[in-house]
Amino acid sequence: MSTKVSIVQITDDSNLFNAIYECINLLGTENIKNAKSILLKPNCILDKAKAATDPEIIRNTIKIIQKIKEGQDYSIYIGDSPGLRSKRSRKIFENLGIMEVIEETRIIYEEFDGGRPPLHIQIPDGIRLKETKIAPIIQEVDLIVNLPRLKTHMLTVYTGAIKNYWGIQPGGTKPKNHMKGTSTESFSQVIADLYSILVNKSQLIIMGGDGMEGRGPSSGKMRKLDLVIGGTDPVAVDAVALAIVGHNAIEKVPHIRICAERNLGIANLENIEIVGKTLPEVKLTKPFHLPGRGRAWAGHLFAPLIYRYTKKIPRLHRKKCIKCGNCEKICPGEAITLTPYPSFNRKHCINCLCCVETCPSDALRVSNAGIWGMLGMR
């Protein structure tokens, strides 16, 4: 079994349309030609431009689909459910400039939060996630065009094509399901469970724009990539993307390894046909900095103590805090209260770091629990 991933260089901003077009053509356009209904799924966790899919990637992808579909009867939709339950995607799309793209290209905006009633889905083969709710459009369309940004992630190490599907779950479903996995490994099983409902769905992944390293997925450092990476298997696209930024997906990212082990996609580079640019041509000389993971010590004799010392917890930089309440609203364990600054109940905290992820002012940072964690006090 093999799959194909395309890599195309972006020479300048004016070349973006051609780069995405070539990326798609290298894969073949049959899935677009055969689809009467297409959903674009960007990554819009919150209204930070560097944390979201670049609107120009969205605009040019739409124009290419419209060019390929010229003369046909079809519909293009776009939708996402952001990280914050209090903010619907329309507001975030407006702040990011995506609504302007939607109006310009005349595609259909689909509200995932507060729109049509969500669809209740059973996951019979789920290990940790046995059921969930998703936006109904996910099952209705013929093709999903997944538009992630390549980023690191403080809980899952990396977020790309597979993790972008977390946003198909509306509103409070996401924090509820976060409680199903409270460590990197267990939450990675939850991610794989969710993706398993889409594995037979026709997909096209277009990953482009700058990447993020370090304290991703929202507060990391941006790195210039000047690449478009495409494929029809999100596991393979993520594996190639990680190889480009200097890391082995199977060794470093549990949810990619788990998806491959469960035959939900291909992560072994030997079974991936790379077309366009070759890996040696585009691989970064300086690898992306990945967030630390205390859980990597799991096999050590003193693993419980080491884990409690190195586990990642949120810490407040009060001078940066704007008291917006995002952290309190997003917390799946209801471990945060505003008094008026965020106060943490460590016994309820599951270390998912959603609060850090959605903080608009970078007032929440990640640090080791330290000696107090070893003593069970954090």
Rank of each mutant, 00 (worst) to 15 (best):
T3F: 00
K4Y: 00
S6C: 07
Q9D: 01
D12L: 00
N15R: 06
L16E: 03
Y21C: 07
C23G: 11
N25T: 09
T29Y: 00
E30M: 03
I32K: 02
I32H: 01
L40E: 04
K41R: 11
K41P: 11
I45M: 10
D47G: 05
D47Q: 08
T53C: 03
T61L: 10
Q72A: 14
R90E: 11
M99F: 02
E100P: 03
F112A: 04
Q122F: 04
I123G: 06
G126P: 04
L129R: 02
L129I: 02
E131L: 07
K133C: 11
A135Y: 01
I138S: 06
Q139E: 15
L150W: 07
T156L: 15
V157Y: 10
Y158F: 15
W166N: 13
K174Q: 15
P175Y: 07
K176Q: 15
K180S: 12
G181I: 07
T182M: 12
T182V: 14
S183E: 04
L204K: 01
I205D: 10
G211R: 11
E213L: 10
G216F: 11
S219V: 05
R223D: 01
R223H: 10
K224T: 13
D226P: 00
V228N: 10
T232N: 15
T232D: 06
A236C: 12
V237I: 10
I244G: 07
A249Q: 11
K252D: 13
K252Q: 15
H255E: 06
I256Y: 11
E261T: 08
I266H: 06
A267V: 05
E270Y: 09
N271H: 15
I274G: 09
I274L: 07
G276S: 08
E281M: 04
L284K: 08
L290G: 00
R293C: 14
W297E: 01
Y307S: 08
K319H: 12
K320V: 02
K323C: 03
K323R: 13
G325L: 06
N326E: 14
N326Y: 14
C327L: 05
K329A: 15
G333P: 04
L338Q: 01
T339I: 13
F344S: 03
N345A: 09
C352K: 06
C354S: 13
A363R: 08
V366K: 13
N368S: 15
G370R: 10
M374W: 02
M377F: 14
